[in-house]
Simulated scan of single mutants.
Amino acid sequence: MLRFILSLALLAPLACMASDHLDTPSVIADPRTDIGDLYAWTSTDGRRLNLVMTIVGHSFSDKTDYVFHIDSGKTFGKTAHTTTVRCNFPSAGITSCRAGNDDSAQGDASQPVGLDSAKHHFRVFAGLRDDPFFNNVKGTRAAYSVVFDALQRGTAMDAAGCPLLTQEQSDILLEQWRHTDGGPATNFLKGWTPASIVVSIDLPLVAKGGKLLAVWAATRQGGRQIDRAGRPLTGNALLGTIATDDISDVLKERYNAATPSTSAEFTAEIGKGLALYDSFDGACGNQWLIEKAASPSERYRALAALLADDRLWVNTESHSCTQLFAVELAHLGRQEKWHGDCGGRTPNYNAVNEYRSLLVNGTTRGVDDGVTHDELRHSDDVFPFLAAPGQREKY
Rank of each mutant, 00 (worst) to 15 (best):
N350F: 00
K211A: 05
W216Y: 11
Q287M: 10
G210N: 02
T140E: 10
D181R: 07
L238H: 00
L239M: 01
E269D: 08
H378Y: 01
E168A: 13
G340A: 13
K252I: 09
R48P: 07
I5F: 08
L10S: 10
L14Q: 11
S117M: 06
T193P: 04
Y349H: 06
T33K: 15
T259R: 13
F188C: 12
L174F: 01
G271N: 14
R365T: 04
H121L: 12
T316W: 11
Q106I: 12
A229T: 12
F188T: 13
A109G: 08
D131T: 15
L14C: 09
G390E: 13
V85T: 02
D245V: 00
G100C: 05
K272G: 12
T234N: 08
S91A: 06
N136Y: 13
F133V: 14
R299V: 02
L332H: 15
A351M: 02
K138Q: 15
T193S: 05
A143Y: 10
R231T: 00
D108K: 05
G282P: 11
E317Q: 12
V67N: 07
T79C: 05
N136M: 12
T346A: 01
V52H: 09
F325V: 07
T33G: 13
T186Q: 11
M157I: 13
A308D: 09
A118Y: 15
E265C: 03
E298S: 13
A214W: 08
V206D: 13
G362K: 11
K63S: 07
A29S: 13
T84A: 08
N350G: 06
T322L: 02
N353H: 01
V199W: 04
F4I: 07
Q169L: 04
N350K: 08
A243W: 08
P25K: 12
D37F: 13
N256M: 13
Q176P: 00
E393Y: 09
F188E: 09
D380M: 03
N50C: 01
A275H: 15
K78M: 08
M17S: 08
N236Q: 05
H21K: 14
F134I: 05
R32C: 11
R129L: 14
S19K: 14
P384D: 04
N135W: 06
N88P: 03
T95G: 03
H378K: 01
L38V: 14
A330C: 15
